[in-house]
Simulated scan of single mutants.
Amino acid sequence: MIRAHEGLDQPWDNTGLHQLLKELDTVPTRRVVLAATGTVLTTLAWQSLAAPRPRLTAPGKPTTAVPPSALQIVDSLVAAAQAADDREGSSARQTIRMSIPVIVRLLQEGEYSPETGAHLARSLAQICQTLAFMHHEELAAGASQRLYLMALRAAHAASDRALVASILALMSGQAADHGQAADAVQLAAAATEAAAHSAPSVRALVAARKAIAHASARELDAFESSIDDSNRFFEQAAHQVGAPSWAGYADRTELDAIAGRGLVLLAAKRTADPLIALPRAAELLQARAQTPLGGDHQRSALRHGALYSLAQARLGNLDTAVDAAETALTRLPTVASTRSMMLLRELASVLSQHSSAFPRARAIVYEVHDHCQRLRLR
């Protein structure tokens, strides 16, 4: 049993990176990993911005070349992992883990230029980031956090500040989900600094996720300011050049959904008037909640569909809430997301208050209860 940050206090250089690569393959499944909080976590985040980029080379005598075809294979693994997360949620996480040793072996044993080394490190960071999010969706907080920290090391080694910003922003969201508001705000601030010279689409996504951190901290003005920043950067994105491919995920629908999620959180914390925040949240969440079944963005549609239904239920719009809940439940079991299932369980609790007079609500309560039993959620 270890804490998520234990053993990661290695130098931010080539030697330190390779030392961490030795254990990367064993972390999520062979140990019980406990989440870290406070300065032990945020210090690593700020260090990632201050440390110089290492010159990547294999630690010993290379045993194999790294041809362009190897990079193409690695790129396909990264794209497949991201697509699986987008369409299926966390269900593919064990399969995706199997791609990590491929990239680690190339980094540790390959003969490559600094540019190729950076390419491999960037790919490893993206795989670890995707896996970290999947573990977070399945409530494995410590393993998720450790994978994020590994991803942060790899992104730093690749000198990819946009990817560093993305990882830090997701770490901030994880902290917010676990009620660690101070950590969430610190990590969001580090993400904002890392993204300062990135493409507008990256900055728009980071600003939207920063808004979630401020919502968790009950900072309404800072939340609104972050949403304004996100919208402003998104307007600039139409003219951007050199944006990373993964930033294309941050379309208008997704950014609105993130803002809607923050408003639901603010309403729940009574930081914003629910009668004002929830209608606005529902409007922002609606497009993602109504994403067609079977296409892209299914995992996001499940989560934000559950939030949309919850917002409508709390407003007393029961027919709309049930319609949205039915759509969200239809995405199961194709999409695995225990965290979204917990949102639906919260929704069922609200709907149960009306189930005696509203049969459609009663049916949703029973179906959610059935899914929770299958997942052994109490």
Score class of each variant (00 low, 15 high):
256 D>Y: 07
190 A>H: 03
40 V>L: 08
16 G>D: 08
232 R>D: 11
128 C>R: 06
62 P>R: 07
131 L>I: 12
374 R>G: 11
40 V>C: 03
284 L>G: 06
378 R>D: 04
244 P>Y: 02
354 H>R: 13
279 P>I: 10
37 T>A: 14
48 S>F: 14
249 Y>T: 09
366 Y>P: 00
342 M>N: 11
180 Q>V: 04
197 H>K: 14
243 A>H: 04
12 W>F: 07
92 A>V: 00
352 S>G: 03
134 M>N: 02
44 L>Q: 10
45 A>T: 09
350 V>P: 07
322 V>Y: 01
313 A>Y: 09
310 L>T: 02
250 A>S: 12
340 S>T: 07
10 Q>T: 13
240 Q>D: 15
215 A>R: 13
197 H>E: 13
76 S>V: 06
116 T>L: 05
268 A>Y: 12
307 L>V: 01
225 S>H: 11
232 R>H: 13
291 T>N: 05
231 N>Q: 12
176 A>H: 14
315 L>Q: 14
37 T>H: 14
66 V>K: 06
253 T>I: 10
95 T>V: 15
111 E>S: 13
301 A>T: 01
55 R>M: 11
207 A>H: 08
17 L>D: 08
165 A>I: 11
37 T>G: 06
23 E>R: 15
83 A>P: 00
117 G>D: 05
2 I>N: 03
258 I>F: 12
36 A>S: 15
52 P>Y: 13
237 A>Y: 08
124 L>R: 05
118 A>N: 04
376 R>I: 00
75 D>E: 11
57 T>H: 09
374 R>W: 04
240 Q>G: 13
308 Y>T: 05
152 L>R: 08
143 A>C: 11
162 A>G: 15
130 T>Q: 12
190 A>E: 02
146 R>S: 01
64 T>Q: 14
209 R>D: 00
117 G>V: 06
121 A>V: 05
32 V>A: 02
330 T>P: 06
132 A>W: 03
362 R>A: 15
117 G>Y: 04
290 Q>S: 11
100 I>A: 05
225 S>T: 11
250 A>C: 08
169 A>E: 07
